[in-house]
């Protein structure tokens, strides 16, 4: 104690204050930080508080110990299976969205006539709500839809193919709504890769598959990982299409639906919160795995300007 007293600054209070604020400013702490305040408040009020409240609620079931809601969820196969049902929808849909975006974005990164129009066509599904997409799918792929009329009419099948009100209906819906996000992100990642790198590889004797595999893909991979995470999160929280074009009682009873039913059909808020927490944990787990893989990749400059 006495040591600290001896070591106080010899100069009295006056000139010490500007020195302190200067030192803080050098570490990026100054009054402009106040601009962060609205965002911090927003996050605190609309994310941190509801999350904390839900977490607390999940450990406070109406009867039983603090873990009773989780126990109820995991002990009931009908509930537990929703994890696999949701993963079974979200993982393939996100993967397909990312993989389908790569060749299209790869072809579209240069300048060509009609690029804007094509981009608009590819991106328009973003503006359509899930409900509108579901409506369209029901009309198009339903038993009396154009697609099945054509299939039956051409004699490719004896009876209409079941493509809605089951797994495939939800899967198509996820692809239609998720693809534009993945495509736009990957297009911007690809545009950031300097095209002279591929030209250099060409002059060194690499054909286009080698150029793609050895140059473009490694530089794009971190972007693919990020895009996959976002596409996955988007697909994982599927809810309306699971009800509208899926089979909500069976094969497309996803986590979000289970949580909804717990909350608004059984009025068990604790179980609903527990399901929401499980949902979050599964998402974080998948993202952690992907980002762990991403951290092992080269993630520096890709030579592009800007």
């Amino acid at each position: 104690m006495s040591l600290t007293v001896e070591r106080t600054d010899p100069t009295p209070t006056g000139p010490r204050d500007p020195g302190l604020s200067h030192r803080l400013a050098e570490r990026g702490i100054d009054r402009t930080l106040l601009l962060l305040l609205p965002a911090v408040l927003f996050v605190a009020l609309l994310f941190v508080y509801p999350f904390g409240y839900g977490l607390q609620l999940s450990f406070a079931p109406a009867e039983g110990g603090p873990l009773a809601s989780y126990a109820a969820f995991f002990s009931d196969p009908y509930q537990r299976n929703t994890i696999w049902i949701t993963l079974g929808l979200a993982l393939p849909a996100a993967l397909l969205n990312v993989l389908a975006s790569v060749p299209i974005a790869y072809k579209m990164r240069g300048r060509f006539r009609g690029k804007r129009l094509l981009t608009i066509v590819l991106v328009v599904p973003i503006t359509l709500g899930t409900v509108l997409t579901a409506q369209g799918l029901l009309n198009f792929l339903g038993p009396a839809g154009w697609f099945n009329k054509a299939v039956v009419g051409l004699g490719l099948a004896d009876a209409p193919v079941q493509l809605v009100n089951n797994y495939w209906g939800v899967f198509f819906s996820l692809v239609i709504t998720g693809f534009p996000f993945a495509f736009l992100l990957i297009l911007s990642y690809l545009s950031g890769i300097d095209p002279t790198l591929e030209q250099a590889a060409a002059t060194l004797g690499a054909d286009w598959t080698q150029r793609f595999r050895r140059i473009t893909l490694p530089l794009l991979a971190p972007g693919l990982a990020t895009t996959f995470c976002l596409a996955f999160v988007l697909a994982f929280s599927v809810f309306p299409s699971a009800v509208l074009v899926g089979n909500p009682a069976g094969e497309t009873r996803v986590l979000a639906l289970a949580a909804y039913q717990a909350a608004y059909e059984q009025y068990d808020y604790s179980l609903a919160s527990a399901i929401a927490m499980v949902m979050g944990a599964v998402e974080l787990l998948v993202i952690a795995v992907v980002l762990l893989w991403r951290s092992r990749l080269y993630a520096g400059s890709t030579g592009g300007k800007g």
Binding site: L197, L204, P218, L219
Partner: peptide, 17 residues
Amino acid sequence: EKRGFGMVFQSYALFPH
């Protein structure tokens, strides 16, 4: 890739990874 000419680019175009 079939010409077998070497090229040095203004931006160097080294493979960054």
